[in-house]
Design a protein around this nucleic acid. Structure first.
Length: 949
DNA sequence: CTGCTAGCATA
DNA sequence: GTATGCTAGCAGA
């Protein structure tokens, strides 16, 4: 990085002029609300819901920190809040903001601490009675702009767009949106100078200010473009046709009032609040009052922020920052350095990206990562298929705002001389494989594979931002771009911008090195910053941190499973495919004859035409789009009276089998390993489960003999057997544990057949007297409970009427009152908090639990019932995987895990280890947690997966 | 070539 | 009635 060719990229606002003074204006009021609603319910004491809430405090601090980092040179900094009490607008129009709900208590109690924090962070806090925050912002912005100062207003509120001028830009720190002159024109279709006119036409439903009825963004923009201003529109009101024109004429009297209400004032008298205007000295940013800030962080339970600041204090006794933190006093404005001593968490500065082309530069970075406490690491590769991917380049970041990219295998035109891939990897290998050198990544399981493809087993991965996000906010997206936007307010380079998408996509290796460097370095940098934003939130919550640690350990176990792969007998499957093909052909012929014409049996649409138009069969039910359904249930019903549906039914079954399994699986065999390597998605399922794809090995058929033959092709290599270890009745056991229902607990503690026991209770007979029919009913009821069933669903499933189903459920709840209580309590707490928890504290959010849309809300309620059980089961099997992997490693066993299917672990076991495995694996699985009921794991062994059951 | 739907495989 | 992923067909680029 010193005497070597390199490129520097200034990220963030690249147009930031060096010498131009800047004023940062934050719309504190808009961010209060957004932080309050966006962040989970944080508390000083996470376990005490009555303790001081801190989510909004945290959010505002984060936002200011991000902003400060983006504009490190800003000289003036003000954060404006609404003052309590009415404003001049209420006098003009009593209905102003009449529909606004009062501020929630949990937010109100955070206002004073927020003001305190903002002040300690070195910002001037302003709240002026009688006018709104917007008016204060407008006044300050105009004053500053008149003095040739560049003004950056940060707000989540669109209304401020009317303030935009050449000197005034509105940014939305949370979404990264940037509204300057061009941005406003693009977004609204009118120039910034006409934004007031535009808003008056539209009105503002949030503030209860009417506009012109039926005039939306499109019409408003059209009129303004046509006539040039609202005044001109009013003058020509009589000429405007249609409904909108009529409404406009009706609104003519109102419009001047609307304009008064919606115009942001830029001439407020701020005397007494900002002395010294228009010199602006009064709002000069100060240094952080570090000492007091640490106290503040501690008081509100932000342990990591406190630690970071304390560390930063001792480390950076920089002379430029003066003699350390001073409380309250303004620093010398002539330094122009608003944030001389930022917390360690986000060192200010332009984002600096190095491209490493030669050995001296490489050595410098190697020394950096060797010395670093934590290094963010990212690879760019030739393929998304993790078993195939080869490295194209590697990036690192150890300090926020600084990153390096090492291009290694770019092949595009004009690619400069790159360092040799193999040699670089050899030199990085000791660091990569050193467990003491802590690393961090986004989706580290992928990078582990990539390095393994080059013979490197990475050790010392301490964090994965994807998993942090998954644990904190399971229902939100977890891609790095989403995380950066959501938590940093940063919008990076899109992958598609580099490589294009779809068929036109080019390999990453052909991307120009400078572009690739910018992209990759930014990824590492963002990964580090996202970590700094998310890890503190995990660290201060014991339960979530525990779940995160489980995810990190699972990630490594999953990597091992994926890497190992599964041996598939491709020839056996090809034989099955051929047989299925013959039978499918025969069925097609029969079906065509029965229909009297050829048609595609795989097309529900064509089947519909034949059935319901040509043959006049009765429509049993319709699909979501209103077309007559031809699904299995319908076909079964029609098959009672007609011959054709049965053929279709059989055809469906066979072609599903052939098309999805017997044809496809042999094609998925990896040429290098001779095995199939699925991918387990660890951050997809909202309940904490894994999902499996490419291929999906979690939906291999088992329910009928036809399908089970596919499982025979999952085989063990010579000298080994396949073992399947699965949890027995795991979700019902969890229901027993969570609900604490005595009857259910007893059934499991006594080792009874739980469906039989349920039948005995519901039908009021002795356990020995239960018929197989009764047991079948009980089983359906038990499953229904796990799914949050309704009587309607149960009736449909059992083929009984609704009243009978309701009776069964009533009988069940009579016999198992604890279960009833659990269901009710879970629904209620989901409504109160917006989430439910697993036994181990994994949070499962239900965004629609309070939806005004009935069916959606009902769906969320069912999910609320199911999620703790499904999620706890997921937690348990993840614990099992970690424990099993640990045991295999410690004892240097040859046994390998090869699959996970939600409540089942599949292993490949050398014959010599079968006895050990038979006793030890179930013991480990049963022992991962002590619930109120025993856990039971059962193991089967066979030459293939089918016979291991 | 892409995105949607209908249908269906698993726990 | 919970949670997923994959396929074929089909419509609109």
């Amino acid at each position: 990085m010193h005497n070597c060719p390199m490129t520097e990229f200034a990220s963030a606002p690249a147009d930031q002029a060096e010498s131009q003074p800047q004023l940062l204006l934050v719309d504190g009021s808009s961010y209060l609300y957004r932080a309050f609603h966006a962040l989970p319910d944080l508390r000083v004491d996470p376990n005490d819901r009555a303790s001081q809430p801190t989510g909004a405090i945290r959010g505002v601090i984060n936002m200011l920190t991000v902003l400060r980092k983006q504009y490190p040179k800003a000289q003036y900094a003000v954060c404006v809040f609404d003052a309590p009490g009415g404003t001049f607008r209420d006098d003009i129009y009593p209905e102003y903001k009449a529909q606004r709900a009062p501020m929630p208590d949990d937010l109100r109690s955070q206002i004073a601490p927020i003001h305190e924090a903002v002040d300690l962070l070195g910002w001037r806090v302003l709240a002026v009675p009688g006018v709104e925050a917007d008016d204060v912002i407008g006044t300050l912005a105009r004053t500053a702009a008149e003095q040739d100062i560049e003004v950056i207003v940060s707000s989540g509120d669109k209304d401020l767009a009317q303030l935009v001028t050449e000197r005034i830009t509105i940014i939305d720190t949370m979404s990264g949106k940037r509204r300057d002159l061009a941005g406003v024109q693009t977004e609204f279709g009118v120039p910034a100078s006409l934004m007031v006119d535009y808003q008056v036409l539209l009105g503002d439903s949030v503030d209860n200010v009417p506009g012109v009825d039926k005039v939306g963004p499109k019409t408003a923009a059209k009129w303004l473009t046509e006539y040039g201003s609202l005044d001109a529109i009013v003058e020509n009101a009589s000429k405007i046709k249609g409904m909108a024109g009529e409404n406009l004429r009706k609104a003519l009297e109102w419009l001047p009032t609307g304009r008064q209400l919606l115009t942001i004032r830029t001439n407020c008298d701020l005397t007494g609040y900002v002395d010294g205007l228009p010199s602006l000295d009064a709002v000069t940013g100060r240094e952080i009052n570090a000492e007091a800030m640490v106290e503040f962080y501690k008081k509100y339970g932000f342990k990591t922020l406190a630690k970071g600041l304390e560390a930063g204090q001792s480390k950076t006794a920089s002379p430029a920052a003066g003699s350390g933190p001073k409380s309250g006093s303004n620093s010398d404005p002539s330094t122009g350095d608003l944030f001389a001593d930022p917390p360690a968490a986000s060192r200010a500065g332009e984002l600096k990206y190095d491209v490493v082309f030669d050995w001296p530069a490489f050595d410098a970075w190697l020394a950096k990562i060797e010395a670093a406490e934590l290094t963010a690491l990212d690879t760019e590769t030739t393929s998304l298929d993790e078993m195939q991917a080869r490295i194209v380049g590697i990036s690192f970041s150890v300090t926020p705002g600084e990153a390096a990219y090492i291009p290694l295998a770019h092949t595009g035109p004009d690619t400069p001389q790159q360092l040799p891939l193999d040699e670089v990897l050899q030199r990085l290998k000791p660091w990569l494989e050193n467990p003491g050198k802590k690393k961090l990544g986004q989706h580290i399981k992928y990078d582990r594979h990539v390095f393994a493809n080059h013979g490197i087993e990475v050790r010392g991965y301490a964090h994965d931002t994807m998993l942090q996000s998954y644990v904190l906010e399971v229902h939100r997206p977890h891609g790095l771009a989403s995380l950066a936007e959501r938590h940093l307010g940063r919008k990076g380079i899109q992958y598609e911008d580099l490589c294009g998408k779809g068929a036109h996509q080019i390999p990453f290796a052909q991307v120009a090195v400078d572009k690739a460097a910018e992209y990759s370095a930014e990824d590492s940098d963002q990964t580090l910053d996202v970590h700094l934003a998310l890890w503190p939130r995990l660290e201060e919550n014991d339960k979530l941190r525990g779940i995160y640690e489980l995810e990190m350990e699972s990630s490594e176990a999953l990597y091992r499973i994926e890497r190992t792969g599964v041996l598939i007998d491709g020839d056996a499957l090809r034989v099955q495919s051929h047989e299925l093909g013959q039978r499918i052909l025969a069925l097609e012929k029969e079906a065509h004859e029965l229909a009297g014409q050829p048609f595609n049996l795989g097309s529900p649409k064509q089947i519909g035409e034949i059935f319901f138009v040509k043959l006049g069969l009765p429509v049993v039910k319709k699909t979501a789009t209103g077309a007559p359904s031809t699904d299995e249930e319908v076909l079964e019903k029609l098959a009672e009276d007609y011959p054709l549906p049965a053929r279709i039914l059989e055809h469906r079954g066979l072609s599903k089998l052939k098309g999805t399994y017997t044809d496809k699986l042999p094609l998925m065999v990896n040429a290098a390993t001779g095995r199939v390597h699925t991918h387990y998605a660890q951050a997809v399922a909202v309940t904490g489960r894994l999902s499996s794809n490419d291929p999906n090995l979690q939906n291999i058929p088992i329910r009928n003999a036809e399908g089970r033959r596919v499982r025979e092709a999952f085989v063990a290599p010579p000298g080994c057997v396949i073992a399947s270890a699965d949890y027995s009745q795991i979700e019902l056991r969890i229901m027993a544990h969570i609900s604490g229902d005595e009857a259910l607990l007893r059934a499991f503690t006594e080792g009874l057949d739980v469906h039989r026991a349920t039948a005995a209770e519901v039908f009021g007979v002795e356990t020995e007297q239960v018929t197989s029919e009764q047991r079948r009913y009980a089983k359906v009821i038990n499953f229904g409970l796990i799914y949050g069933m309704s009587s309607f669903g149960l009736a449909r499933n059992l083929g009984i009427d609704n009243t009978a189903a309701r009776n069964y459920i009533a009988r069940y709840f009579e016999r198992y009152p604890g279960v009833k209580k659990y269901m009710d309590d879970t629904r209620q707490s989901a409504k109160d908090t917006g989430y439910v928890e697993t036994v181990f504290g994994r949070r499962l959010y239900l965004p629609e639990i309070n939806s005004p849309n009935g069916p959606r809300r009902a769906g969320a309620e069912r999910a609320a019932i199911n999620a703790p059980m499904q999620g706890t089961a997921a937690d348990l099997i993840k614990m099992s995987m970690v424990q099993v992997q640990k045991a295999l490693d410690e004892q240097q066993r040859k046994t390998r895990m090869i699959m996970q299917v939600h409540d089942e672990l599949v292993l490949e076991v050398p014959e010599a280890e079968v006895e050990w495995m038979r006793s030890e694996i179930p013991r480990l699985m049963a022992g991962v947690a002590a619930l109120k009921v025993p856990l039971l794991a059962e193991v089967g062994v066979g030459p293939n997966w089918e016979q291991a059951h």
